[in-house]
């Protein structure tokens, strides 16, 4: 198989397969969560569970007083990574071309120089959280292979993409193939690993808040 053949496959059947598994997996996880149901709560509600759930989704994203140093680090590094990653994903012109072909509409791109910075920030934050994970004895004990897999699968598309837009001594076609492979593998594994938090974080937070709200407890 030549590089061009591989690229054609990745832009064709490979793309369809990964999108199909990603969409199937995410919808499956959401509908499974919702269909599981809960026992009917016979107690009279003391507050609005729905709005309390929404409130929790929001409040858990905020800094709050009394956070530990570790808490601040997690929040700051987490935000930095997510911001860098998402801006790079959604505002690089080449990515917008792809989104336009999928959704039928696009949006203005950011200049490549800014995307360079956001990608570097994203990667730097990822490296920082990895070092933190390895150095912190508690976190290290809590980590299993999936945490490191999720880290690698998030880092690789960023790193290969960064190399792609800067002249390298490696074949562009090969790098582009690698970049697409990493992105497609990421899509495939998201629904079935901790990376499914891209959806489940909202469901989990809402549910926590809703339970508290039902009981009239401020969450």
């Amino acid at each position: 198989m030549t590089e061009i053949e591989l690229l054609s496959w990745l832009r064709g059947p490979g793309f369809q397969i990964s999108v199909a598994i990603f969409v199937f997996g995410l919808v499956y996880r959401i509908s499974q969560n919702l269909a599981l149901g809960r026992k009917k709560n016979l107690a009279a509600p003391r507050g609005n569970s729905f709005s309390a759930g929404l409130n929790t989704i929001w409040r858990r994203s905020l800094f709050h007083e009394g956070m530990s140093y570790r808490g601040y680090f997690t929040l700051i590094a987490g935000y930095t990574f997510h911001l860098g990653f998402l801006v790079t994903l959604f505002f690089l012109s080449q990515h917008i071309i792809m989104f336009r072909s999928i959704f039928g509409f696009g949006w203005p791109a950011l200049p490549p120089a800014i995307i360079d910075i956001t990608a570097l920030i994203g990667m730097a934050a990822l490296v920082a959280v990895l070092i933190h994970r390895i150095q912190d004895p508690v976190l290290r004990k809590l980590s299993d292979y999936q945490d490191y897999l999720a880290w690698a699968l998030t880092f690789l598309p960023l790193a290969s993409g960064f190399m792609l837009v800067h002249p390298m001594e490696i074949s562009y076609t090969l790098l582009l193939c690698l970049h697409i492979i990493f992105a497609e593998v990421l899509l495939i594994v998201i629904p079935f690993t901790k990376l499914s938090h891209m959806i489940s974080i909202f469901i989990a937070r809402w549910y926590n808040g809703a339970i508290a709200g039902y009981k009239g407890v401020q969450s």
Binding site: V19, F22, F24, Y28, L34
Partner: peptide
């Protein structure tokens, strides 16, 4: 950067299959 194929049909089927499976 653009996929050579359309994924909307297959994505639609994946939504239906995912919902049914869930």
């Amino acid at each position: 950067a653009e996929p050579t194929v359309d994924a909307s049909t297959i994505a639609g089927a994946a939504i239906a299959a995912g919902a049914a499976a869930g």
